[in-house]
Design a protein around this nucleic acid. Structure first.
Lengths: 147, 147
DNA sequence: CCGTATCCATTCCGATACTG
DNA sequence: CAGTATCGGAATGGATACGG
């Protein structure tokens, strides 16, 4: 039996996981957000076999998260670039990063941190805020259909 | 060959995906954040077979994201509750939810939305902010080791 | 009600070899 | 450099039956 598709689920979390909920996709998006564009860059940095990388890249293109374009630097090859839709995954990656750093200490006494490029200060922890600016915890929110 | 473990990776995103990057985990956490605690509730709502649910629950307990405790309502059974560590995944789920709602429109003209429980207003879009409050885009951040 | 035990199908990953 | 083809192994998901 195949895994149920959740693309038609009412919950946007489920639908999102249906698209980027696999193992490699978010790591590829992470590297593209860092500016990587070439197949070989991604392959080396992710340490993934080429056929897997190919498959994942194709899937991300099909989802309109990446595009494959002629390289801007004039080289004969093509390059993978994030679409706007892909770039909007930034908060997802930041949330994952912050949770990992705070909750998966591990052995590393000085784990990597997302910082402001200019001032080299850590980015603020993400907060969930109501329309009026109040910080909300999980219990103060509900998933509902408006209207 | 088995999938590479990224638990020792330097990048906190990779380490996080190693823990909750599978198909069901975040959906279970989502339901627990909504207040679900019972096996049967989860099984019905997720529409997952019992053995799979058992496997995932055990894994989440092993990761200290869930605990299994005697039910508070006096029933003979036990209940699954999020640990603080698990509860801190809230921003991850909100980020996934917002991305899905904004970028995976689908057929539904009125998709589900996360709202403030009290006023029924949509939660603000997550913003990534620097230490001084400036909103940061992906290009204005770097992942680095401090110190 | 809350699982566990089998068993099977599918999907996914990875190594290797090969191509333009 | 940038893939494709093939193959095998492992993890995952699911149906079903069974047990405390």
């Amino acid at each position: 039996m195949r895994r149920k598709s959740l693309s038609g689920a009412p919950c946007p979390i489920a639908r999102t996981l249906d698209v980027i909920g696999d193992w490699w996709s978010l790591l590829i998006v992470r590297d593209c957000l860092k500016g990587m564009r070439r197949f070989s860059e991604l392959q080396k940095n992710l340490d993934v076999s080429k056929n897997i990388l190919t498959r994942r890249l194709r899937a991300l293109i099909a989802q309109d998260i990446l595009t494959l374009q002629p390289a801007a630097d004039g080289s004969a090859y093509q390059e993978y670039r994030l679409t706007d839709k892909g770039r909007r995954l930034f908060p997802v990656l930041v949330a994952l990063s912050q949770w990992g750093r705070e909750n998966l200490a591990g052995i590393d006494p000085n784990p990597m941190t997302l910082v402001d490029r200019e001032y080299r200060q850590p980015v603020r922890p993400i907060e969930i805020r109501a329309h009026d600016g109040r910080v909300l915890g999980p219990g103060e929110t509900v998933m509902t259909r408006l209207g």
